[in-house]
């Protein structure tokens, strides 16, 4: 049960579960998520707030905030298991093999150090280089991410940069050690559209030049549409649908994806009303039985209310929806499930 890409995968996530122990019981925030990312591929992960997309990203880079923890499942990078590594081991991989870009460029930089010092520190942590060599590489990196006057700017502090320029610095930091995979969590959400376009095309260019794979976590379908090769749509902690980006956008196989696409206002045709999905995503404490989307779904059958679908091949991708099962949504429900 995996949406495999053709080459040997760079990253394999298998049956990942992230849970939060709380006073009222354990909440399952990421529930049985599996996917692969091939070398050089851009996988978009979309979903609404609370769908578990950022937690999946954080689990991969080993930065889950306690009390959140990986309950089960495996994460493999280049065939090596990384989800159960001790903290120090993971620290070496993070930065060197996996880079991270976060939403807010101001909080991902230390305001007390010049950007040059932060870059040099990161380079020297992962590469055996003298300070002079590292400084030169830092300037090269700043040039590569398109910061004008890199030689002077390197001594500036984060507050002296604008939002877009800061995000460029963060990207330079993520690239310091030449990682194979970048986990970018909402990298353009805090930026204006014109700056967003600059950052997205920069990210695309860099990944193409270096052959870096990207896991792009965002709620912005437009950004996914122009950047990603494949896209995974998450809903209530599970992958609802995964497939090639064009297919997911144009010929969505999951009713949730269809609703989501319809609710995005688009230029070019103005309808009297936007398509809307009634209701909202369930809270983690109130995830319904069966398919988590069934109370909002217009196509549900009796099976959807009791039995939870796994990813089923649908079109060119996979969708967790009984509509794509041979027996359909109305199939008789196994007795033990109906009684439960």
């Amino acid at each position: 049960m995996a949406a495999r890409s053709s080459n040997a995968p760079l990253l394999e996530v298998r049956n990942l579960r992230v849970e939060f122990p709380t006073r009222r019981g354990t909440l399952l925030a990421v529930d049985d998520v599996s996917f692969d990312i091939a070398p050089g591929e851009v996988l978009g992960v979309v979903g609404e707030s609370g769908a578990g997309k950022s937690l999946t990203g954080n689990a991969i880079i080993g930065l889950l905030e306690p009390p959140g923890r990986i309950a089960s499942g495996e994460i493999r990078l280049e065939g090596r298991r990384i989800d159960n590594l001790p903290y120090e081991e993971m620290r070496k991989i993070r930065g060197a093999r996996i880079g991270a870009i976060f939403q807010d460029p101001l909080t991902s930089l230390n305001p007390l150090y010049s950007v040059g010092r932060q870059l040099v520190e990161t380079i020297q942590t992962h590469r055996p280089m003298s300070a002079a060599e590292a400084g030169k590489r830092a300037i090269d990196l700043l040039k590569e991410v398109g910061i004008p006057g890199a030689e002077q700017r390197i001594d500036h502090y984060p507050h002296q940069f604008s939002g877009g320029m800061r995000q460029r610095v963060v990207i330079a930091l993520a690239l310091c050690a030449g990682p194979r995979l970048i986990v970018a969590d909402e990298p353009t959400t805090a930026l204006d559209v014109s700056i967003q376009a600059q950052i997205i095309s920069l990210l695309k260019r860099l990944c193409r030049d270096h052959g870096t794979a990207v896991m792009l976590v965002t709620h912005d379908m437009g950004v996914i549409a122009e950047t990603a090769d494949r896209v995974a749509v998450m809903y209530a902690g599970r992958v609802a649908e995964i497939g090639p980006v064009h297919n997911v956008i144009k010929h969505a196989n999951h009713p949730y994806t269809r609703g989501l696409m319809g609710s995005i206002p688009s230029l070019g045709h103005r309808a009297e009303r936007l398509t809307q999905i009634d209701g909202s995503m369930p809270r983690l404490t109130e995830i319904p039985k069966g398919c988590a989307f069934n109370p909002r779904c217009t196509e549900r059958g009796q099976r959807c209310m009791v039995e939870r679908p796994d990813l089923i091949p649908a079109g060119l991708g996979w969708a967790a929806c009984w509509l794509h099962d041979a027996k359909g949504v109305g199939a008789a429900v196994p007795k033990e499930l109906a009684d439960a």
Binding site: M165, V193, A197, M221, G222, M261
Partner: peptide, 24 residues
């Protein structure tokens, strides 16, 4: 025109947005 050029659009799968230089 620049603003309209930079809107990401679902129709744009795989295509390049025209990035505009400079900031406000």
């Amino acid at each position: 025109r620049m603003l309209l050029d930079t809107i990401p659009d679902l129709e744009m799968t795989g295509r390049q947005r025209t990035p505009v230089g400079g900031e406000v």
